[in-house]
Design a protein around this nucleic acid. Sequence first.
DNA 1: TTATGTATAATTGTATACAATAATTCAATT
DNA 2: AATTGAATTATTGTATACAATTATACATAA
Lengths: 225, 225
Amino acid sequence: MIKTMKTKDILYQELKQKIINSDLEPNMPIVEDNISKEFGVSRTPLREALQRLELEDWLVKQRNGRLKVSPVSVNEVKEIFQVRSRIEGLVATEATKKATSKDVEELKRITDLITHAADTDQRSEVVRFGSEFHNYLYELSEHQTAKKLLGQLNDHINRYRRIGPTKSSDRSKSAANEHRQIFEFFASGDHENCGKSMETHINNSLNAAVNSIESYLKLTKENEE
Amino acid sequence: MIKTMKTKDILYQELKQKIINSDLEPNMPIVEDNISKEFGVSRTPLREALQRLELEDWLVKQRNGRLKVSPVSVNEVKEIFQVRSRIEGLVATEATKKATSKDVEELKRITDLITHAADTDQRSEVVRFGSEFHNYLYELSEHQTAKKLLGQLNDHINRYRRIGPTKSSDRSKSAANEHRQIFEFFASGDHENCGKSMETHINNSLNAAVNSIESYLKLTKENEE
DNA sequence: TTATGTATAATTGTATACAATAATTCAATT
DNA sequence: AATTGAATTATTGTATACAATTATACATAA
């Protein structure tokens, strides 16, 4: 069963991905005519895609009414992480309340995968299974409001992760430990501390993103002068 | 300096207000042609307003592509309060960190107004100054991401407050005490407990909204059969 | 009666045309 | 050269026209 996607949804996805990948760089001007010709569509569905991107803070409208790709800033990434931290805490708490023994089993499996990947220095695998860990809690929590929010916040965080040429410090080992810690509280049904440790975990992961954005801002500033 | 509002923004505001006021009731179908004629505008800006309302969960698109006003549910209002609780906690914490003696003075003034209103049974004034209390912390926190989110969550909560014929139990006295408690932590610079007590305060206020929605759902169900 | 198919109408999705606004160019003036 | 202002161009905002999809009404067959 295939749900045919409307033009505006395709445009939304494509453009968002381009922004996340820095194919469309911060502050780059967005002109409707150009993009509509580029994609071979009319301005009507494009404008709807652009409006959504604007509402979700991927684009900003300037005083003259023209759109540009949102700038990046240390302050913004900090804010995003702060909010994400709280919502992830909520989700972890609620997920713990709903957990069955089957869920504990499954999350243990994922936790072990993270640990193993960290032990064997497979950093991309740590990231991959880390996402799986978080997503499992999202689903288990059945918290639609939080899920929607986290989806958007994580997309923005991914942009910050990819922006600029960064060899971030390796947080694999500590991240693995933190996931283990979260899991322990989860398994014991201690929803309060599960949420707490999740909050801490997210706050700890902020630094990598901040370093990334700071080196990027430094570079662009150099190029400006 | 007046910023001329575009048609879509006016439509967005008007329609959202109608939904909040239950002038447009839950599950009511939305037909573009009807509304565009009603407002005397073309479908183009209307569709952009409707899309925004959809993205912000005021409208939902059904499988057949038609829009309707979002239904209300106990589960949803609980979710909204849970998320709001966490974000308000974050904001209260951050605001405390930035507070000057001037801010403490001002928030004390508002707190006293709440207390006095509660003591003299002026319930609507308790609500009014209560909002002022929260808004003061929003501004002080300077947390754009959180402010935007709270704006949307509070709008939805206001819809739940107004829906259905409810004589909610009077929480004025306890709410006043809770604000006093939050203020005390704020004034002493204890940002951790300020956030904590704010979270608790929001969670306590959930019941009123739940009662409101439950009586509404009961009524509509009766009318259906 | 119930189900099925088909024509019609209603509604949404997309493209295009036109209007309003903002930016740019460039001549005229100082 | 620097400044102003009108004419032109570029861009966004709105309205309308057309295409695609979905719902409805109704006739027909089982």
